[in-house]
Design a protein around this nucleic acid. Structure first.
Length: 860
RNA sequence: GCGAGAGUGGCGGAAUGGCAGACGCGCCGGACUUAGGAUCCGGUGGGCAACCGUGAGGGUUCAAAUCCCUCCUCUCGCACCA
């Protein structure tokens, strides 16, 4: 009767596979449900984070299948990426070989977990069958003006020999992979996707996602997109041609603009400095600021400083001549790289003005309190108010003033209303080998020429010797790169950059619907049938990049008539990280398990090791747990149960070996309970009609548990409490007396209890549930049974415990008939002896009856 | 600095304004046993008690872990955004 998961699990994995329980036909024969977890990067082996996310997804998929949905639950591999190249450098292998070997290994690991994927739909993004279509999308984007080429300042890592996204730069200005390498700025020709064209819709689309997506993810996306409304204003240069254009959210304060701050990189800085003989000083400042890199410059703690460039411009409203400063806090990439400075109403400008002795002119007066003057201001007044000293706008409410002044700019042709985004267009070029080739040919005469559609795919040559230490071997692959220009036929050269790998992950969820279509990327009919993804599960670290890029892609493909609906992911579950408490030695800092002896002392110094802070599992911290070892020791069901039980899905999960033991013990308990009673259960009849008190009690527990579990899984996604409810039910069954199992009276109720227990457990711990389902003589597989409906009448209690409070303190508990009226409960409470002790001789002030819950009495 | 989230026993966590600490871990005790680190059963917030207890302080309410205000700490995201 011992629970031995290993034999059980391989048996049922094979049986499910043979029966095709998770295969999903294209034709939708029942309500569809598309359940998707973020696909893995094939880094070598799966880690606990994978176990967690795929277990959550599988629980939902299996539950929905039992609920009668036709569930699409696919898996694939996000297979292009830098780690493959790094591994290739280290081990002298080829990125392709490394990747495919990892996929084979990890596929096996996922299968060992019993995750119910439709493996027929599996694909890896590094195959031409997949990436050919994104090359096609890219050609469309060029044609639609959405993809364009731009010379741009970009983050550059010398070690990677490539451009990094802003998000790939660490806070300290180092590369996210090589944290010893400083990221520098480089100007390069790059391909960009015009994601900002969709900025407004990426924001307004949130209305559709509310309720289905966690609020914090929406908030992060809002901040990421960073919409601000304002105006662009042209400031003419004093005594010369040209102007400086600024963006401001406060056009109402323009009469108070007393100087101008521009980014040190702004071309006018050098111009002014040269013209006015301040070149040396200014250049020294600019060089110094350039040495502080971009991340540092925008890091808050940095001292705000600037230098007068020698130039002036004209405030177009006051006509005043105002000095132009180069300032380290102005970012060349944001807005226009120039800011009109209004020290009276912007704290940063205020500080700057104080530091450099620049005039402060208040132009907004608060409605209440004393009028502000330059002399009395201790800090900038950034609140609302009435405009002052503002020509014809004086006296106007400042919000109305924003609109009126902007209208005035537009009439005069000196400015315009503008919406500015923080979001920037997506640079997709990477100087990497292991990625999807950008389908473009560069010709000396014709420029960048798109590869004709009929010549797609541009296949990444996988037979290149992978020997270069740095940079992109594609750039050295002359044989591959030399081609005639498609337009003029002259000798030309392929683009040797590849796409950012976020390109692949931006549309894979669509391809799963039609993964083997070699005639077109997506089939419109199937898209309509299967989109959107009903439930997407993944880590919160993708809140901004992947989830915005994917939404953007989906909207673009929608505009091309390929993808239906406005949003690809209806519901999102952001699961927390898997963490592990670190062991801390007072002398040596954190240790990992093998550095600590069985008595809990540091092997190096013998000091007692303490349990330290919980940190995300990662190789670098050396606090990882190998899922395979876990499966080998305890079985997949235990690994799954533990990761669902230890924490609610959206919170971080603290790894605990003892917690795993607990999950294993529970499954053993279920196994023994049922295996021991196998015969009795097989022999028991079915519940029907009225039954005795014991049977009723058993059925009540069963149906209450079922109700709770169904609600927790379906509506609340509280998987941990669903499991605890099942545990309580098992504890209850252990306490049912032995004889009941063989009694004619109670045995049918116990049989029902066991059957429903196994069905409830099936999405959580599918293997052992299946085994026991078979053991007690049921036909068909547990995972294919419909999810049982709780019998409300059975679940209802006939007697209810009601608590009684006197003056807010709990004083007594009474049991009342479930149907008792408020009046009856009221008098029961008042006559209860325990209650009377506290009310005797006092006046009743108030009495509240909460039906079926409590009575609250106030006396004095 | 801005934004979001969190803070509950020795630990992970329960509790949709209504019995704080479900369930699990750990610990303690008992049973069974040649033996137990297996299994089964029981106990387990603090306090002798009245009572006290959900980061601290205030408020709303018959009733607050939950709602409001102030503050502290932690995590995450953004980071001088004009």
């Amino acid at each position: 009767m011992k629970y031995r998961p290993q034999a059980i699990e391989s048996k049922w994995q094979k049986a499910w596979d043979d029966a095709g329980v998770s295969r999903c036909p294209d034709e939708v024969a029942a309500p569809k449900y598309y359940c998707l977890e973020m696909f893995p990067y094939p880094s070598g082996r799966i880690h606990m984070g994978h176990v967690r996310v795929y277990t959550i997804g599988d629980l939902i998929a299996r539950f929905k299948r039992m609920r009668g949905y036709q569930v699409l639950h696919p898996i694939g591999w996000d297979a292009f990426g830098l780690p493959a190249e790094n591994a290739a450098h280290r081990h002298g292998t080829h990125p392709a070989k490394w990747t495919y070997e990892n996929i084979d290994f990890m596929r096996q690991q996922l299968k060992e977990l019993g995750i119910s994927y439709d493996w027929d739909r599996e694909f890896a993004t590094c195959t031409p069958e997949y990436y050919r279509w994104e090359q096609l999308f890219f050609l469309w984007m060029i044609r639609d003006g959405l993809a364009y080429r731009k010379r741009a300042l970009l983050n550059w890592c010398d070690e990677c020999q490539t451009v990094l996204a802003n998000e790939q730069v660490n806070r300290d200005g180092t590369c996210f992979i090589h944290d010893q390498t400083r990221v520098t700025q480089r100007e390069l020709d790059q391909w960009f996707l015009g994601i900002t064209k969709y900025a407004d819709e990426l924001l307004s689309g949130h209305d559709e996602l509310k309720g289905g997506w966690p609020e914090n993810v929406l908030e992060m996306q809002r901040n990421w997109i960073g919409r601000s409304e304002g105006a662009e204003i042209d400031f003419p240069l004093a005594g010369g041609d040209g102007m400086i254009t600024v963006f401001t959210t406060r056009p109402d304060t323009i009469y108070g603009a007393t100087f101008m701050s521009v980014a040190p990189e702004h071309p006018l800085v050098a111009k002014f400095a040269g013209e006015t003989g301040r070149g040396k000083e200014v250049r020294a400042f600019v060089d110094r600021v350039a040495g502080q890199d971009r991340i540092e410059r925008s890091s808050g703690e940095m001292e705000k400083e600037g230098i007068f460039t020698g130039g002036y411009c004209i405030n177009p409203m006051t006509g005043g001549k105002i000095p132009v400063f180069a300032a380290n806090f102005v970012l060349y990439e944001y807005g226009t790289g120039a800011v009109m400075a209004v020290p009276a109403h912007d704290q940063r400008d205020f500080e700057f003005a104080k530091k450099y002795g620049l005039p402060i002119v208040p132009v907004i007066q608060p409605e209440a309190g004393e009028a502000i003057t330059a002399g009395t201001l201790a800090c900038a007044y950034e609140g609302p108010g009435r405009m002052a000293d503002s020509g014809p706008f004086t006296g106007m409410d400042n919000e109305a003033g924003k609109r009126e002044i902007t209208r005035h700019f537009e009439r005069e042709g000196i400015g315009r209303g503008k919406v500015q985004y923080r979001l920037r267009d997506w640079g997709v070029s990477r100087q990497r080998y292991w990625g999807c080739p950008i389908p473009v040919i560069h010709c000396a005469k014709c420029g960048a020429v798109p590869v004709p559609e009929e010549d797609l795919p541009v296949v990444l040559p996988e037979d290149l010797p992978y020997t270069r230490e740095k940079g992109n071997p594609l750039a050295a692959a002359d044989k591959w790169a030399s081609v005639p220009c498609p337009s003029c036929g002259a000798k030309a050269r392929r683009e040797t950059d590849t796409f950012d790998t976020f390109f692949e992950s931006s549309w894979y969820f669509l391809r799963y619907i039609d993964p083997h279509n070699d005639g077109e990327p997506l089939d419109r009919g199937k898209m309509r049938a299967w989109m959107p993804v009903d439930q997407y599960v993944g880590g919160v670290e993708h809140a901004c990049m992947h989830l915005i890029y994917a939404r953007f892609f989906h909207k673009y493909l929608r505009d091309r008539g390929l993808a239906p609906g406005n949003e690809p992911f209806k519901r999102l579950l952001s699961q927390g990280m898997v963490c592990m408490a670190t062991l801390e030695c007072p002398k040596h800092g954190w240790r990992y398990p093998e550095e600590v002896d069985p008595e809990g002392n540091c092997r190096q110094c013998g000091e007692k090791v303490e349990v330290g802070r919980s940190m995300k599992m990662s190789k670098s911290k050396r606090n990882v747990v190998e899922p395979s070892a876990l499966v080998e020791k305890y079985g997949a069901d235990t690994a799954r149960l533990f990761s669902l039980f230890a924490a609610p899905p959206e919170k971080d999960l603290d790894w605990s070996e003892q917690g795993v033991e607990g999950a294993f013990r529970f499954l053993g308990r279920v196994y023994r309970l049922i295996a021991q009673k196998e015969k009795a259960i097989r022999g028991a009849g079915r519940v029907e009609g009225e039954s005795g008190e014991q049977a009723r009690r058993i059925r009540q527990v069963t149906h209450r548990t079922l109700k709770k579990v169904t609600g927790d899984v379906e509506d609340r996604y509280h998987f941990n409490t669903a499991i605890s409810a099942v545990m309580e039910m098992v504890n209850f069954l252990y306490l049912v007396e032995e004889s009941a199992w063989d009694s004619k009276e109670a045995a049918p109720a116990l049989r029902e209890a066991v059957e429903l227990l196994l069905l409830m457990l099936s999405p959580f711990a599918p293997h052992v549930s299946e085994e026991l389902w078979e053991k007690i003589g049921n036909e068909g597989m547990a995972c294919r049974q419909p999810w049982p409906e709780a019998d409300e009448d059975m679940a209802r209690a006939e007697e209810i415990l009601i608590v009684v409070q006197v003056n807010g303190k709990l004083r007594s508990r009474i049991t009342a008939d479930a149907e008792a009226t408020e009046e009856e409960i009221r008098s029961m409470a008042l006559s209860d002896p325990r209650v009377r002790e506290f009310t005797e001789g006092k006046t009743l002030k108030k009495l509240v009856v909460v039906p079926k819950k409590l009575v609250s009495i106030v006396v004095s």
